[in-house]
């Protein structure tokens, strides 16, 4: 088993929480992990990414080589496309459809969506809306994790356990809301994956 994952978004959107949850789930499965993330200046509203690698064999590099990522998970549509050179030919592009606009020259959203829809293996999901539906508007990042979960060889139970560990400090209610967000995102991908 081996999964090379690129997470992307804008500083402050919570990709570190997604990465930490997947990494925790993988660790509980006795898998090897390397997860590289961005700290410092870029966190202030800039483009941020994380390389997450999990495998049942030891992993050499902290960075994923170009053309070999199995999946890009993005909490922002434009950011999902920034790391395409890392995606392998049959890789999945799983992204939130809602833009985070903090630059004057943000591209036309319809053009962005059509670029994403060009990929045979894509999930374009309104994670913000789904997060609101499960009454956890701040959990759109965990909705994205849920949407990506069917493509990762980690069980739903493992993800739930990981959420309990990662968010436990914030109280039971936050844990429960995040688990609901995880399920909702997963449900979306499972139904939309079938259609294709």
């Amino acid at each position: 088993m081996k999964a090379d994952i690129i997470l992307s978004g804008v500083g402050g959107q919570g990709i570190v929480s997604i990465a930490a949850t997947i990494a925790q789930a993988a660790l509980d499965n006795d898998l090897f992990i390397k997860q590289s993330e961005v700290h410092g200046m870029s966190q202030r509203g800039g483009a941020v990414y994380s390389h997450l690698r999990i495998s049942d064999k030891p992993i050499a590099s902290d960075l994923i080589p170009m053309g070999s990522a199995d999946i890009i998970i993005s909490v922002e549509p434009m950011e999902s496309l920034r790391y395409l050179p890392w995606l392998k030919e049959e890789g999945w592009l799983v992204t939130n459809s809602i833009p985070f606009i903090n630059i004057p020259d943000y591209p036309d959203l319809n053009l962005l969506h059509s670029e994403i829809e060009k990929f045979p293996n894509h999930i374009l999901i309104n994670a913000d809306e789904i997060a609101r539906q499960v009454k956890s508007p701040r959990s759109s990042n965990i909705v994205m994790l849920g949407a990506a979960s069917p493509f990762l060889e980690i069980s739903l139970e493992n993800f739930e356990q990981a959420i309990k560990k990662i968010f436990g400090r914030k109280g039971e209610r936050i844990v429960e809301l995040n688990i609901q967000a995880l399920h909702a995102g997963r449900e979306f991908s499972l139904t939309h994956k079938e259609i294709k």
């Binding site: 804008v10 800039g46 080589p65 950011e79 395409l84 030919e89 903090n102």
Partner: peptide, 21 residues
């Protein structure tokens, strides 16, 4: 050989860090 299957679409804009709102 370095593999690269996809290019970054031209419409992608830079997103430098900024002072928080």
């Amino acid at each position: 050989e370095i593999k690269q299957y996809f290019k970054v679409p031209e419409i992608i804009a830079n997103r430098p860090p900024e002072l928080c709102s």
